[in-house]
């Protein structure tokens, strides 16, 4: 446990809007070790991106971290002065976004951007920085990196652009990378190339990786640990294989059951009725209640996180423990 890169404890990030308080992240806890990949899965609006932004110190008003701690190698990032945070952000913790143009500047050549990024944190000469940029492009599988260095972002395909954004994120050999749906917009063939590179890099550089996605199938083959989010909370957490084979939380069970390949071809898919709530002024209790077949009066209070089996956490009063192997 002491080798955790990041330990998030009871994190709460709320947005204070005119319509009410949006509890985008509400009492979220997890940790991630070096050389490990954690999948953060959930439907749209469940709070995945806001979790990532909170760790990066990028939550803007009307949003605010209202509780909890974010321990990076034991140092709490919550409330850290911006000057301190800037030394960590981009250098020791990096983020990759769904849209690579969040990282890339359209009017600057790739080498200019990469060299600037390096020199922002380190005192190295131009030639060394350029050398490192070229190596970084090669590392993420960009062919003829020397020539590509002098190109502009629009001269790359979407998949290539995302790779450049990943290369930039890797420039400082960060200890933690948060990847927010970086392959969602890409074709499976290109996605597989990027997953391949990421998997290799995590192992080689012994960094922690948080992979945010709404697609369980992607993280099933990639991650070690899984966190399933629903309406701002992590409802289930544990080793990926165990969760996929034997989910404990009714929501996770429904989600896995609704994946087409889990159903006989042509037969109706198992489906979760209803839809996810917007986390505005949620009533107390389990937010999954209206969609849950197991809900009863107990669920009108908020279920605590409990370790139901070693390493298997869930937030539910009536977890699926009966079919334990």
């Amino acid at each position: 446990m002491s080798n955790a890169v990041l330990k998030v404890e009871n994190l709460q990030t709320h947005f204070f809007t005119k319509a009410g308080v949006v509890k985008s992240v509400d009492d979220v806890s997890f940790e991630i070790g070096r050389g490990k990949i954690m999948g953060l899965v959930g439907e749209s609006g469940s709070g995945k991106s806001v979790s990532g932004f909170s760790i990066m110190g990028l939550v803007d008003p009307p949003g605010r971290i209202v509780g909890g701690r974010i321990l990076f190698h034991g140092q709490d990032l919550v409330g850290l002065p911006e000057a301190e945070m800037r030394k960590i952000r981009g250098r020791r913790i990096a983020m990759i976004f769904q849209d690579p143009m969040m990282t890339l500047n359209p009017v600057l050549r790739i080498d200019t951007q990469m060299i600037e990024t390096i020199q922002a944190h380190e005192k190295v000469d131009h030639e060394t920085a350029r050398q490192r940029s070229r190596d970084a492009l090669g590392q993420v599988g960009i062919p003829s990196p020397e020539e590509r260095l002098s190109a502009y972002p629009h001269q790359f395909s979407g998949g290539m652009r995302q790779r450049v954004a990943i290369a930039i994120a890797l420039l400082h050999k960060p200890e933690l990378i948060i990847a927010d749906e970086p392959t969602t917009a890409l074709d499976v063939t290109i996605q597989a190339q990027i997953l391949y590179e990421m998997q290799k890099l995590v192992a080689e550089q012994n960094m922690g990786l948080i992979w945010v996605t709404h697609d369980l199938s992607v993280v099933a083959g990639l991650a070690d640990e899984l966190c399933v989010m629903y309406a701002g909370r992590i409802v289930e957490r544990g080793p990926v294989g165990q969760i996929v084979d034997d989910p404990i939380h009714p929501y996770t069970k429904g989600l896995i059951g609704s994946v087409p390949s889990r159903n006989p071809r042509g037969q109706p898919l198992t489906q979760i009725p209803g839809m996810a709530p917007t986390p505005i002024d949620l009533p107390p209790g389990c937010p999954f209640r209206p969609r849950c077949a197991r809900a009863d009066a107990a669920c009108e209070t908020t279920p605590p996180v409990e370790e139901h089996r070693p390493g298997r956490f869930a937030r539910c009063f009536h977890p699926h423990l009966e079919d334990a192997a």
Binding site: T189, L216, G241
Partner: peptide, 14 residues
């Protein structure tokens, strides 16, 4: 290339 819900961790070979 298709990502599958198989629980085994796989190595991607694109």
């Amino acid at each position: 290339e298709v990502p599958r819900l198989e629980s085994q961790r796989r190595v991607f070979v694109p």
